[in-house]
Amino acid sequence: VITQLFKDVERLVSQEEYAKVLRSIDKILQLNPEDNDALHCKVISYIRLGKYQNALELLQKSFSDENLISEKAYCFYRLNKFDELLNLLRQYKLGNKNELSLRHIEAQVAYKTEDYNASVEIYYALLKETDKNLDVYNDILTNFNAAKAALL
């Protein structure tokens, strides 16, 4: 039964039917409340639906501090919880975990809080280490230029 439900989840994710994903996930969690993949899917579905508070509550209830850090940071970012976000980022920098996702969140929150120098610096470093042929290179360049323009 769980295998079939996960197949449904996979199909619904590819169709971007996130409200329906949540329904299938809840059926899995009724059978197996601790299923880590199901809990992870539930967090991402909430985020895709813009329900950042629900995502954050689930992250805090069902995942330890070291898990799904990027997801937690992203929820803080979207909820404008900048103090919590900066604490989280500081913690992870101390642990030398410099994931790309966290560097992007750091650059975005710097821009959002008008710390344009910090934002420019992170995007400059990201540009230097990103392949120019990747789509993301142009996105980084756009954000770099936006932060640089805001500095002037």
């Binding site: 996979e10 899917c41 991402i44 990027s70 940071a73 992203y74 936006a146």
Partner: peptide, 21 residues
């Protein structure tokens, strides 16, 4: 205000193990 992308969103994704369940 200039264009600014939410690039971090792309790094938040469903677990890669999903297809093996």
């Amino acid at each position: 205000k200039p264009l600014f992308f939410d690039i971090a969103f792309n790094y938040v994704d469903f677990p890669p193990t999903l297809s093996q369940r």
